[in-house]
Amino acid sequence: MSKIGKIRMRSLLVLPVIAAAALGAMTLTASSVKASGGEAHIEEMDWSFNGPFGTFDRDQLRRGYKVYKEVCSACHSMEYMHFRNLAEKGGPEFTEGQVKTIASEYTVEDGPDQAGDSFERPGEGKDRFPSPYPNEEAAAASLGAAPPDLSVIAKAREGGPDYIHALLIGYEEAPEGVSVPAGGYYNPVFTAGSGVIAMPPPLVEGQVDYEDGTPNTVEQMSEDVSAFLMWTAEPKMEQRKRLGFQVLLYLIALSGLLYFAKRKVWSDVH
């Protein structure tokens, strides 16, 4: 190979190396930021949606929805989610009929009607999940701080679903020397509050009746609702990965063709 050819090859090789190094540096930065956050252990779970081909487990999302509805929704809103989303592809994929039933169990405020009055009616697919509190102040009054909205929570916390899962099972007896104020609970995963959280331990063994016979342990319920919240945060994830795979295949093929076309075009130079 000519020297110029070698140099050219080298630059070709250097490019991805530099890119990889830069990305590595960024990831390092991100993980060291994470590490400085706190000492609590957050286990990396083997989610069905991990990896480039991972998809949501429909049954798990349905169970997770049940946990959200029966436990979380008492205090946590999910304001960017509509009932209709539950029937959409890539999610729990409830049937239209099931969604109608689910929605109709909620009461939503509507209006004004022709007389100018607000009125209440059963929920429909087009409605958003109603908030458990009439306003932010009422929400804040309940536990001292407004319980966060859960629509995008899995993207709003370092560690995502791993964090939510670890938090839900992370309640412990406070170690000696740590004083937990009245109305607080000790949970070392909750580093934002230095290990003290206002949310009472939400899950107890056997709390939610699973219709598919899955054992309703705290561990299982916690995993299911974490997976569900990952879906609410990223409802188009499956479509994204599927399209991404096609786009990458296309680009790799295109790059190959362009590379050989380039070699052909340049073959008469030098």
């Binding site: 990965k241 991404g244 990458l248 680009l251 790059s255 362009l258």
Partner: peptide
């Protein structure tokens, strides 16, 4: 053609982030 090849390789990195690590 050379720029086209460079762009195409760059788009692979771009697509990785958009689709798999957004």
């Amino acid at each position: 053609i050379k720029d086209g090849f460079g762009m195409s390789v760059f788009l692979i990195l771009f697509a990785y982030f958009v689709f798999f690590n957004p």
